[in-house]
Design a protein around this nucleic acid. Structure first.
Length: 379
RNA sequence: GUGGGUGUAGCUCAAUCGGAUAGAGCACGAGACUGUGGCUCUCGGGGUUGCGGGUUCAAUCCCCGUCACCCACC
């Protein structure tokens, strides 16, 4: 098996880089954004929509599929690609985050994690090895090991204990991966350690000794102040080998993505475009719009004059506002469609800018235009 | 025409024996949402208590008149 991540180009002014991931289900150009499809579905969108938009990979959540319909069913069908019809790569989240945030009961030992379903209270006992096999059975292209998502705030002692369990689980996950998962799949390590730089560094060193195709930054945006978050990111990003992937879990806004690409981060997933879409907030090149706001009542312009998505080509702000306010399901769909398109287009633009060594210029222009509306409103 | 009933926020309704700045839900307005409950939360603007008198220290509440609507009976 050849190398699955290829670094194509590094920006001359920043740490931003252009790369390509090769998988059984096609290539992924980075920096890239993963729409989130919790229940093997990106809410309100079809896979045809996602292909048309140009999404290259989606995230699907193991935790939710363990609960419903159950892994055995998907395994017997032949995995998620067979089950869903989505032909492109899939990254599965291990469920670590959900077990600790959604489960009504959760007990962690060195050996495994015991939790109760947030849906019906059923008790599950899963080891890190189980979680790897589950993702293999799901036919995942990129696998994440079980980890402990450390809450904020967290004292250093506890953060260290949780980081060390995560590290131990990573080692066992890699061993299970080598034993039972076919080639041509990737597994990432997950970095914990809260806001403590030395713990983060210790975690990374441990993960590097185990060896992964990529390193995911976990336990961020869990309530910590933004300066602490960027402090961690700036500190740890250079510690990740250049020939491996850097993945920021659960981020972010368009501005955050630009800031993080500049630090050398390659992959992002986030519920923001779809959740905001369903809740009536849309992104545009001139900033965020809350579509239900009364100023759009008679506004016949599209959400974004510069956008070529299906929604912007066919619908006005006035009509979208109406659909949202009367709770037509179509509203959530059209707004989600636009938001995902906006994010995917942003990633394409970022890739092109890096290729041409003009990432900084692109970033500054984008941010300036993006903040324009806020500046006008505040004035 | 007679008798009875009801009038409080845009809507549906609260408000103890007559007691302090007349409340709530929905609607409306403005925000929030970061490895997803199409969930939810936060904040805000809103009132001459139909109108006019009276009693009282004090009236959404009691009394009189009047208007509107509803019901029943001629």
């Amino acid at each position: 098996m050849g190398k699955m991540f290829e670094l194509i180009h590094e920006d001359k002014d920043t740490n931003a880089r252009l790369g390509r991931i090769k998988t059984l289900h096609g290539d992924i150009f980075t920096p890239q954004f993963l729409p989130v499809g919790t229940y093997a579905a990106v809410k309100t969108l079809s896979f045809q929509d996602l292909e048309d938009i140009g999404a290259q990979i989606i995230l699907i959540n193991a935790y939710h599929l363990i609960l419903r319909p159950g892994i055995e069913i998907i395994k017997s069908i032949g995995g998620l690609h067979n089950f869903t019809g989505w032909k492109r790569p899939i990254l599965t989240d291990s469920g670590g985050y959900q077990i600790f945030s959604l489960a009504t009961f959760c007990k962690v030992t060195e050996e495994n994690v015991i939790f109760k379903s947030h849906l019906d209270g059923t008790t599950y006992t899963l080891s890190p090895e189980d979680i790897i096999r589950i993702q293999r059975d799901l036919d995942s292209d990129i696998i994440l090991p079980l980890d402990i998502c450390t809450a904020f705030p967290c004292d250093k002692k506890k953060a260290e204990v949780e980081m060390k369990i995560t590290l131990n689980w990573a080692k066992r996950s890699k061993e299970e991966f080598q034993k039972s998962v076919k080639d041509c799949r990737l597994i990432f390590g997950i970095i914990q350690g809260s806001v403590y730089h030395d713990l983060r560094e210790e975690c990374i060193e441990g993960l590097k000794r185990i060896g992964f195709s990529g390193y995911a930054f976990g336990g961020l945006s869990v309530g910590e102040p933004t300066d602490l978050k960027y402090g961690v990111l700036k500190y740890i990003s250079p510690l990740i080998p250049k020939d491996t992937l850097r993945y920021l879990l659960g981020h972010g806004t368009p501005q955050q993505i630009l800031e993080c690409v500049e630090l050398g981060i390659d992959l992002f997933d986030c519920v923001i475009p779809t959740r905001y879409g369903r809740n009536g907030t849309v992104f545009s090149s001139e900033g965020k719009l809350i579509i239900r706001d009364s100023i759009f009542m008679k506004d016949l312009r599209p959400v974004d004059e510069n956008c070529n998505c299906f929604t912007c080509r066919n619908f006005s702000r006035a009509y979208l506002r109406h659909l949202f306010n009367v709770r037509e399901p179509l509203a959530g769909r059209l707004l989600s469609l636009h938001n995902i398109y906006f994010y995917i287009q942003l990633m394409k633009d970022i890739q092109n800018a890096i290729r041409d060594n003009r990432f900084l210029e692109f970033k500054h222009k984008f941010i300036e235009a993006y903040n324009k509306r806020d500046a006008e409103v505040n004035f």
